[in-house]
Each structure stands twice: as structure tokens, then as C-alpha cells.
Amino acid sequence: MFLIPCPHCGPRAMNEFSYGGDATVTRPAAPGEASDGEWIEYLYLRDNPKGGHEELWQHIHGCRRWLRVSRDAVSHDVLGCVEATEAPS
């Protein structure tokens, strides 16, 4: 039960949030122009790194903002949390 330092609400327990996957995946700006390979990469292909991971969490029981959380997937240390569209802190 680690804490996520929500930039709007302060440090809150993770069960106030909903996990939203890899934050480094970006949706092709013009899907119609993306190749099948690019589109499938966006839809399905994810790395499973040991250690640092940039990930999306939505504060569903708080401000409802989608947030970008930098987390160590081994130690569960949360190293930073910003708005989803901001660069990692």
C-alpha cells in the first residue's frame, strides 16, 4: 500500500488511484496515417522493465486527474508524480 504524491491532493494511499498502464506510450497523433506496426505497438506492445517505470494512475477517488507516476517496480518506491501530460519530474 504505497503512497502516491498527487500534485493536487497531496500524498494519498494507492487504493485511491486506478492504474492506467505505461505512461511512455503515446497515441499516434493521426491514427489513419499510422502503419499497422505502429498502431499495434501503441495498442499492445509494452516493456516490463525491472526497476524504474513511468506509469499512468488516475486519482479516481480524489481529483480524478490522470497522473504520471515514476515508480520503481522492484522496491515500489515512488520517485515522482506529475500531471499526465507533463514531463517526468
Partner: peptide
Amino acid sequence: AGPVMAHLEYYLQIVWP
């Protein structure tokens, strides 16, 4: 109802802000 709300918020906040 909940998942649709989160889905709409995802596209509004991240994809089409």
C-alpha cells in the same frame, strides 16, 4: 458508468487536452 467516465477523462486530459 465508472469505466466510461475514466475513458472520457483519459482522452480529454491526455490525448486531446
